[in-house]
Each structure stands twice: as structure tokens, then as C-alpha cells.
């Protein structure tokens, strides 16, 4: 258990650094889509809900997991869809000038 915590912590810390460099390279014009998409991917928390919903039978854990799954699914589908909708709007000059 102890070693597993340290290895998880290593992954966590390294991922923070990856996030730091990746996010600074995001153009400010896309900061709103960035928030929408980070929101969608943080809903990967749905895997935790799946573990709760997964087993057969009925329990408090399962009900909580089910609600969590619905909320996370709203976020996943909503977040990716709205990001896609926003990104589709960013166009270059030649197209828009004609209208």
C-alpha cells in the first residue's frame, strides 16, 4: 500500500508539470473552450461511479453511484458537445469576409 501511494503521488506531481506546460501553450482566444473541455475530461470520475453501480443487487453505494454516473455523463456529453460547437465557430479571415 505504501509504495503504491508514492508511485501515485509521483504520477500526480509529474502530471501537474505536464498540465502546466500544456496549458501555457493554449492560445488565450481558446480559454473558454479550454474550460469546457477540462470540465468534460474531469468527468472521467465516472469510472468511480461505475465501480459503485457495477455489482449486482441493491445498496446505498449503488444508488449514490448511479446518481454520480448521471451527473458525470451530463458533463461528459454536454462538455464535449459544447466544446465542439464552440471550436467549430473559430474561422479564418477569407471565409467570413465574403458574407
Amino acid at each position: 500500500m505504501e509504495t503504491s501511494f508514492v508511485s501515485q503521488l509521483s504520477i500526480f506531481v509529474l502530471a501537474i508539470f505536464v498540465g502546466y506546460y500544456v496549458v501555457w501553450s493554449v492560445t488565450p482566444a481558446l480559454h473558454t473552450p479550454l474550460m469546457a473541455v477540462t470540465n468534460a475530461i474531469s468527468s472521467v470520475i465516472i469510472v468511480g461511479a461505475l465501480i459503485a453501480v457495477g455489482p449486482e443487487g441493491m445498496s446505498l453505494s449503488k444508488v449514490l453511484g448511479f446518481v454520480a454516473m448521471v451527473l458525470a455523463a451530463i458533463n461528459i456529453f454536454g462538455g464535449f458537445t459544447v466544446t465542439q460547437r464552440m471550436l467549430a465557430m473559430y474561422k479564418k479571415k477569407d471565409k467570413a469576409g465574403s458574407k
Binding site: S4, F5, Q8, I11, F12, V13, A15, I16, V18, G19, Y20, V22, V23, W24, H31, L34, M35, T38, N39, I41, S42, V44, I45, V47, G48, I51
Partner: peptide, 28 residues
């Protein structure tokens, strides 16, 4: 929050994603 749950569940995907989102929001 997602990263915290990731630690609880020993799920690396959740830990990495949580860290990415956490640092992204902090930078913004």
C-alpha cells in the same frame, strides 16, 4: 477533487486528469 478520488480508487487516469485540470484552472 477528481484527483483526490483518483487516489482513493488507485486510478491513474483519474489522478492524471485531475492534475491536468487542477493546474489548468490554477493557471487561468
Amino acid at each position: 477533487a477528481a484527483a483526490g478520488i483518483g487516489f482513493t480508487l488507485h486510478n491513474n487516469a483519474l489522478i492524471v486528469t485531475g492534475a491536468l485540470v487542477g493546474s489548468s484552472g490554477a493557471i487561468l
